[in-house]
């Protein structure tokens, strides 16, 4: 069972997008956006990169490591907080490690 508890975005959790949300690129805004019932979240580049890595198999720690290959500075606690907010909005689900 995937846990939807907002606290499970620690390093061993394996996040993935909830089935009913969609990550897509919006040419009008030149940004990635996350679409869910009645909500649009306009993402910055890092946010889009994090969500692009949330495939349900990578752990949060592995996602942070992937990002470090691409960007100079990646704050692991910011990635966890970002995912935690999306878990609270039920846009992201976290499978156990």
């Amino acid at each position: 069972m995937p846990s939807t508890s907002p606290t499970r975005t620690d390093d061993a959790g394996r996040p993935r997008l909830a089935a009913h949300v969609r990550l897509t690129f919006d040419p009008a805004r030149q940004r990635h956006v996350l679409l869910a019932p009645e909500t649009v979240t306009v993402l910055n580049g890092t946010g889009a990169a994090v969500l692009g890595l949330c495939d349900g198999t990578r752990t949060v720690a592995e996602i942070v490591a992937c990002l470090r290959d691409r960007y100079d500075t990646v704050a692991a606690d910011e990635v966890r907080a970002f995912l935690g907010r999306l878990v609270a909005k039920r846009c992201v689900e976290v499978g156990d490690g």
């Binding site: 805004r29 679409l35 649009v40």
Partner: peptide
């Protein structure tokens, strides 16, 4: 269908 195409080009997401 034309309205929807124009809406999407304009930036409508929902």
């Amino acid at each position: 269908q034309r309205v929807l195409t124009e809406a999407r080009e304009l930036g409508v997401l929902q």
